[in-house]
């Protein structure tokens, strides 16, 4: 018998008694390495050693992009209702309420206008932490209105996608948000107002198959999963394992669906340059 073997049996701690390690100053990356939180934030939430892009939300993106973190939020008070009375393990309103409590957000996207390096920009950013960044009526309407604002003020539009796709609990209504947002983008395009679509990890389903793929410039963060069908669905359909790197940002670049991949650290500079090139 090994000396380190536990002698007494049954020493277990119920899950609810296990203590969370306190939110400290250090953060563990998927590679197992740790980094100081402040350092991670200063590096736009990108781990410097392996270029791992941590998933972040609208708060962080707005802070990264807008000068001095100054912006005016649009339509901040739109919230979901329950048109279909959808219930699975929870009712939809309960699910919304829980997500709102957990994330402090109203829904899965926020829109704002402000300046980046002095240039005006309208930004819509999705929040994956809110029901998987899924698009229901609220997200669709916010995207649509942000485009309306960009159209009215002739301001370039940046969409930051991060979503599992359309929101199942709004069924047909979610589906039509794909149509609605595409309609608005058609108008924006006619008016020759620039539209940059940034795809981040993950961008799939109805979001990819509508506004995310319709940019004048389609760009993506390194390593982001981007696709129409989810990898699991494809694996089940074809009954084979998927090739390495399938549906990654690099894969999409290689197949011609992305203009360039941008490191988040350089995001603001790169977008500024692009906007200047169009304005000059």
């Amino acid at each position: 018998m090994s000396w380190f073997k536990r002698k007494e049996k049954g020493i277990t701690t119920p899950t609810n008694e296990k203590k969370d390690s306190p939110d400290g100053l250090w953060e563990k990356m998927p590679s197992g390495k740790i980094i100081h939180k402040k350092q991670l934030k200063e590096n736009a939430y990108v781990y410097p050693d392996d270029n791992y892009h941590k998933r972040i939300g609208s708060t962080e993106y707005f802070e990264i992009l807008f000068d001095n973190n100054e912006f005016t939020e649009l339509d901040a008070n739109l919230t979901s209702n329950d048109p279909l009375k959808f219930t699975d393990s929870k009712s939809y309103p309960e699910r919304i309420k829980d997500s709102q409590k957990k994330t402090g957000l109203k829904d899965a996207a926020r829109t704002a206008h402000g300046k980046i390096n002095g240039l005006p920009l309208v930004v819509c950013c999705m929040d994956f932490s809110f029901i998987g960044g899924s698009m229901g009526s609220v997200v669709g309407e916010k995207v649509a209105r942000a485009i309306d604002y960009a159209l009215k003020t002739k301001t370039p539009f940046l969409m930051i996608s991060k979503s599992g796709g359309a929101r199942m609990m709004e069924a047909g209504l979610s589906l039509m948000q794909m149509a609605k947002t595409s309609a608005k983008l058609a108008l924006l395009s006619e008016a020759k107002v620039p539209y940059i679509s940034l795809m981040t990890d993950p961008t799939t389903g109805g979001v990819t198959a509508s506004f995310a793929m319709l940019g004048d410039f389609n760009i993506a963060e390194p390593g982001a999963l981007i696709g129409f069908a989810g990898p699991r669905v494809i694996r089940e359909t074809i009954g084979k394992d998927l090739p390495k790197g399938f549906q990654s940002a690099e894969f999409l670049l290689e197949h011609g669906f992305i203009d360039f991949i941008v490191n988040r650290v350089e995001l603001k500079t790169k977008i500024t340059t692009l906007l200047q090139l169009l304005a000059n």
């Binding site: 319709l214 129409f228 069908a229």
Partner: peptide, 20 residues
Amino acid sequence: YPGIEAEERGQAEAIARNLK
């Protein structure tokens, strides 16, 4: 169709373009 080739050739882009 959710297949490898469909993704390689841009299923999402094809649908999105049609909508617009």
